[in-house]
Design a protein around this nucleic acid. Structure first.
Lengths: 240, 240
DNA sequence: AAAACGCCTTGATCTCGGTCAAGGGGCGAA
DNA sequence: TTCGCCCCTTGACCGAGATCAAGGCGTTTT
C-alpha cells in the first residue's frame, strides 16, 4: 500500500479533477482534497492543435502542465538546424523541469493535445509544503531518465531497421496498453519527419524500413497513420 | 541564499567528511552536523581499480554511493553484446537510482575510483526524514536528465568528427574546470573502446578522428592518455 | 474540376563510417 | 632480454544509410 495516496471522496474534490487521469496515475494522486481544491483554483485546461509550440528551448518557464490527452514531443536543435527529438510525453505525464528558470528543451504538440496548466509559483509553493509531491515528481523524473538512457542505446547502437521497430514498439506499448494479447491497434501520433528526428535517421530511411516491416507482415499500415501490430512479440524480436 | 545549507563548524562533523567534496557540492551539503554524524556511522570508503564492476544491470541494489575520485561509466548492452555507455559520473556525483529495487544500468569504474558507500536503508531513512535531501537528489537527477538528452543529440545527429570533439569537450570541462582561460590539460579516463561505446562508433573511427584533430592542432596528445587542449573555444567549434 | 500544396514512397547514386587486416609500441612475465 | 599480450593506429575495401530526384496520393484552394 502506498501510504501517501489519500482516499478521497469524489464529492469533496473539484469537478474537473474527478475524472482526471493525473489524479489517479499522475502527480495529483498524492494530493488530498484540500490541496487539490487549492491547486485547481489556479489550473487551466488548454487545448493545442498538432504542431503548436508549447515551450521553447532557452526561454523562461512560466508554467508547468499535465498532459491530459495527446502526445508532446521534446526536442533540441543544433545551430545548423539538425534536430533531435529527446523525449515523448503521454497522458498523464508532468511537463516541465521543476525549479528551473528556463527550458532545457523545446516542447511541441505532436498530435492535438490537452494540457492542464499550473502557474509556476503555485506548483512550487505546493511542492515546498508537501514533500510527497516532490517525491512523486522525482519518480517521474527517474522514469524519464531511464527512458532517455534506453533510447541512447537505440540511437547509438541499433540499425535503421531495429530503430524503426523500436519506435513502433514504444508507441504501441504507450498508446494501447490494453489487451493482454499481443495485438495492438493505434494511430501514429508523429509524422515521418518526427519519427526520423526521434530515431536519428532521414525520412527516406524511415519510409523504406516501414515498407519493409509491412512487406514482412510485422505491421499492417492502412493509410498513412493507422497501424496494426498483429503480434507484439514478433515486433519486439525486430528491436535488437 | 540557500536556506537548507547549514553552517557547520568543522569540529562538529565527522573527520572523514571534513575535506569531502560531497559535503560541499554534493548531496551531503544539505545535512546538518547531527545528520552527517549519523550518516557517517554507516558509510564506508571503498577503492576500486579501473575496470571493476560496481553494480550490474537487473541486479538488486544493495547500496548507494558518492563518487569521491575517478570516473564511473554507466552502460547498457543489447543481447548480442552491442554496448552503449549512457552516462559518466564524476566526483562528487551521487551513484544509484533512489528507491528502485534493481539497477537500470551497469556501473563500472572507468578509472581508479574511490566511493563513499551508504547502505540502501540508511540513506532511504534519511531521505524520508529530510525533504531537503530528496530535493538535492532531485536536482542531480534533473541534471543527469539534461545531460542524457544533450547526449542524445550527439548520438542521433552529429558526425563522427563532431562526436569525438564533443567527447573531448565534455571531459575537458568536467575534469579541468579551472583556468578561466581556454587551455585545458588532463588524462583521458576512458579507453578507446569506452569512447567508442559512449559515442556509438567503432574504435577505428575514434582513433582516426583523434588523429585528425591532432593533425589539425586542435588537441595535443602525448602518449595514449595525456591530452592538452590549447584553445577550448576552437574545440567547441568542432562540436557541431 | 483543376491546380497547388504537403506529405509520403520509391529508385539511383554517393559517401561516411564500419569491417577486415596488418603492424606498432608499451608493459608485464619468464 | 625476449616474448607475448593488450591497446592503439593506419590502410584498403565495403555496405548501410544519406542524398538527390521523380512521382503518387490526399487535401485544400481557386
Amino acid at each position: 500500500m502506498d501510504a501517501s495516496r489519500k482516499d478521497i471522496h469524489n464529492s469533496d474534490i473539484p469537478v474537473l479533477c474527478q475524472s482526471c487521469e493525473a489524479r489517479h496515475k499522475g502527480m495529483c494522486g498524492v494530493l488530498d482534497a484540500s490541496e487539490l481544491t487549492a491547486l485547481a483554483r489556479s489550473t487551466r485546461m488548454v487545448r493545442h492543435e498538432a504542431g503548436a509550440e508549447l515551450a521553447a528551448e532557452s526561454m523562461p518557464v512560466e508554467s508547468y502542465a499535465n498532459v491530459m490527452r495527446g502526445v508532446v514531443k521534446l526536442s533540441k536543435v543544433l545551430e545548423d538546424g539538425r534536430q533531435q527529438i529527446v523525449g515523448l510525453q503521454f497522458a498523464p505525464d508532468f511537463l516541465g523541469r521543476l525549479f528551473s528558470k528556463e527550458n532545457a528543451v523545446t516542447a511541441e504538440a505532436a498530435s492535438d493535445v490537452d494540457l492542464c496548466r499550473v502557474p509556476k509559483p503555485a506548483l512550487e509553493r505546493l511542492v515546498q509544503e508537501n514533500p510527497a509531491l516532490e517525491h512523486r515528481l522525482m519518480e517521474q523524473t527517474l522514469r524519464e531518465l531511464d527512458d532517455a538512457r534506453e533510447w541512447m542505446v537505440t540511437l547509438g547502437r541499433k540499425t535503421a531497421a531495429e530503430k524503426v521497430a523500436s519506435f513502433l514498439y514504444l508507441i504501441a506499448t504507450q498508446l494501447d496498453p490494453t489487451a493482454a494479447g499481443g495485438r495492438r491497434v493505434f494511430d501514429l501520433p508523429l509524422t515521418r519527419t518526427d519519427i526520423a528526428d526521434f530515431l536519428g535517421l532521414t525520412i527516406e530511411t524511415v519510409s523504406r524500413q516501414l515498407s519493409k516491416l509491412r512487406a514482412d507482415r510485422v505491421v499492417i499500415i492502412s493509410g498513412i497513420r493507422h497501424v496494426e501490430i498483429p503480434d507484439l512479440a514478433a515486433l519486439k524480436r525486430r528491436c535488437g
